[in-house]
């Protein structure tokens, strides 16, 4: 069994008018030790809900999350079972995820305290800071004294302090300047290799995901529509939505190429389209696509996709 294993996961919220909105509508995903799995999709597709449920911050409405062979217990009044503290999370905005009134050293010490009793290593604050490229001497300072990129390093150091075996990072670089994005992305890759942790990297940015993730899962309106090794997905997407996402990316090459337009908007998740959820925006949809939901199929080694027309893209 995988280190982190998500099965048939359903997450729903109560909507404005009393109905339910299903943000995650039955997803499967696995993360192995030493592996970076990216989950990409546009805003509102349910990727953050999936990530939060994976670490136990949200109660799933159905399905399960298993970490290291044990079912993940959603956070409640009682302390988390010690082994599950080795599943950690890094958030998008390092300006709100670090308490501004506490010193860096105290923030990291919280993470170290979490590691008590779970059988992992116990680090010192200095070790944690140095591992993310910061100096041990900053422990007495406060978050506001650091730039966005440095703060995200501190947030990562806090997650590492618990000696995690798996980290879920929700858009960990998208709030940062371009130069800081590259350095945090590189840092995460190094840490995964060095510490053999699993990383679920949630992002809207396929071009960065292609650089760092081993496997990429593409999510649309609550469903994972394609999963593949990242470079293969980039070179030859099998789902028309993946192709649309890739085509819309702008390249800073100076060539003056306008990105391809994917017409239409993401539909309301409270009332998803019938059949394949992507069919109203799909350039190659058939009549069948509006009626019959496509099955999740293995089409080539390592390549799974939910699309009636995927064979066409393969040949």
């Amino acid at each position: 069994m995988s280190l982190l294993s998500i099965r048939d996961l359903v997450v729903s919220y109560r909507g404005h008018s009393g109905g339910t909105v299903t943000a995650v509508a039955g997803c499967n995903l696995d993360v192995e030790a030493g592996q970076i799995v990216a989950l990409v999709g546009e805003s509102g597709c349910g990727k953050s809900s999936l990530g939060k449920t994976a670490v136990g911050l949200i109660h799933p409405a159905g399905g399960s999350v298993t970490f290291d062979g044990e079912r993940v217990v959603p956070l409640g009044r009682k302390a988390r079972p010690a082994p599950q503290r080795r599943l950690q999370m890094v958030f998008q905005d390092p300006f709100s995820s670090l308490n501004p009134r506490r010193k860096i050293g105290d923030l990291i010490a919280d993470g170290i305290r979490v590691s008590e009793g779970h059988g992992g290593r116990r680090f010192s604050v200095g070790e944690c800071l140095e591992r993310v490229g910061l100096s041990a001497g900053i422990a007495d300072r406060f978050p506001h004294q650091f730039s966005g990129g440095q703060r995200q390093r501190i947030a990562i150091a806090r997650a590492l302090a618990a000696d995690p075996r798996c980290i879920v990072a929700d858009e960990p670089i998208s709030a940062l300047d371009a130069s800081a994005q590259a350095s945090i992305a590189n840092l995460l890759v190094e840490l995964v290799e060095e510490l053999d942790v699993g990383l679920l990297f949630i992002s809207h940015d396929l071009s960065i995901v292609r650089r760092i993730a081993d496997v990429t899962a593409v999510m649309y309106l609550g469903k994972i529509v394609e999963m593949a090794p990242s470079e293969a997905l980039w070179q030859r997407p099998l789902h028309p939505y993946s192709a649309g996402l890739i085509g819309a990316i702008t390249e800073p090459d100076g060539e003056g190429r306008l990105p391809a337009d994917l017409p239409g908007d993401v539909p309301d998740p409270a009332a998803p389209p019938s059949g394949c959820r992507f069919h109203p925006r799909c350039p190659i949809a058939l009549e069948r696509c509006s009626v019959e939901e496509p099955a999740w199929r293995l089409l080539a080694p390592g390549r799974t996709v939910a699309c009636h027309r995927a064979e066409a893209a393969l040949t």
């Binding site: 990129g149 440095q150 130069s179 590259a182 590189n186 071009s207 650089r211 470079e231 390249e251």
Partner: peptide
């Protein structure tokens, strides 16, 4: 610092500082 071109041509190189 930007991901562009193929990964083998351009490793992501961060600009130091902010």
């Amino acid at each position: 610092a930007l991901p562009h071109g193929s990964p083998s041509d351009h490793p992501l190189t961060a600009l130091p500082g902010s």
